[in-house]
């Protein structure tokens, strides 16, 4: 297993959000985490990245216990999060935003990584000198993913990448993401079911901070929809 969570509990102050969450992500696997508003997806991702310390449970990455490590250590080990709302620096240029994806990674091959990101999202090369805040929503999401790719992560986590984007833009983004699975493992968190489960190898459903269901590509999304009618489909 690349990533393994064992009975993780976490929250904010006295508020316990995640309860007994266990999940695995294998090498080269694309895993979807489906859950409605406030289910705890973003909280779970922040715990994996070390931004929030879990109250109990353990997290293993590449066989090493990373529970409680600070974010900069976890980033350097090869986990990159594209946060909800994209987490860009709007007044910095596209190029600066991308290069910040290499923060804390000394002697990284900057040119090579930039070329790699530009090969996936060519529009970013054209816009490289523009302010990130001046990009369209879809371009901003590409930039956010591109920045995460700069560090050549082993595990890429996307928190609601489709939010605020037109369906056709989401389709293109998902196509780009799917192509990345031969290089890295990916977790996609979304509220809707159809799109992420259509490309995921496996999926989990989270509700009120608990994993309530899990399955694989073999268990069709239709099955999931009937069980999971609390949330709209796309």
């Amino acid at each position: 297993m690349l990533l393994a969570l064992k009975s993780v509990e976490a929250g904010y102050g006295d508020l316990r959000v995640l309860r007994d969450v266990s999940m695995d992500v294998g090498e080269g696997e694309l895993v979807a985490l489906i859950g409605p508003n406030g289910a705890g997806k973003s909280t779970l991702f922040k715990v994996i990245c070390g931004v929030i310390k879990p109250d109990s449970g353990r997290i293993y990455f590449m066989g090493r216990d990373i529970t409680g490590l600070p974010p900069e250590r976890i980033c350097r080990m090869g986990i990159a999060l594209v946060p909800e709302g994209r987490g860009l620096f709007p007044n910095l240029s596209v190029r600066d935003n991308l290069e910040l994806g290499l923060y804390g990674i000394p002697r990284a091959p900057v040119k090579e990584r930039l070329d790699f990101v530009y090969s996936i999202f060519p529009v970013l090369r054209e816009r490289s000198r523009q302010r990130a805040g001046s990009l369209s929503g879809g371009e901003q999401q590409m930039l956010a993913v591109g920045r995460a790719l700069m560090g050549a992560p082993r595990l890429l986590i996307l928190d609601e990448p489709s939010s605020g984007l037109a369906p056709i833009v989401v389709d293109r983004l998902y196509e780009s993401v799917r192509k990345l699975t031969d290089r890295m493992s990916i977790i996609i968190g979304e509220q809707n079911i159809k799109r992420p489960t259509s490309i995921a190898h496996r999926w989990y459903v989270i509700e009120n901070g608990r994993i309530v269901m899990e399955g694989s590509a073999k268990r069709p999304a239709k099955d999931l929809q009937t069980a999971y009618f609390g949330v709209g489909t796309d």
Binding site: P83, F89, N91, L92, L100, L102, Y103, G104
Partner: peptide, 23 residues
């Protein structure tokens, strides 16, 4: 410089800066 970029990134979006490993 990377330090300069980080210095501009922190006030622009502090939570995002933390996520990419800037303290």
């Amino acid at each position: 410089t990377m330090l300069g970029r980080a210095m501009r990134a922190v006030p622009a979006n502090e939570p995002a800066a933390r996520i990419i490993g800037i303290r």
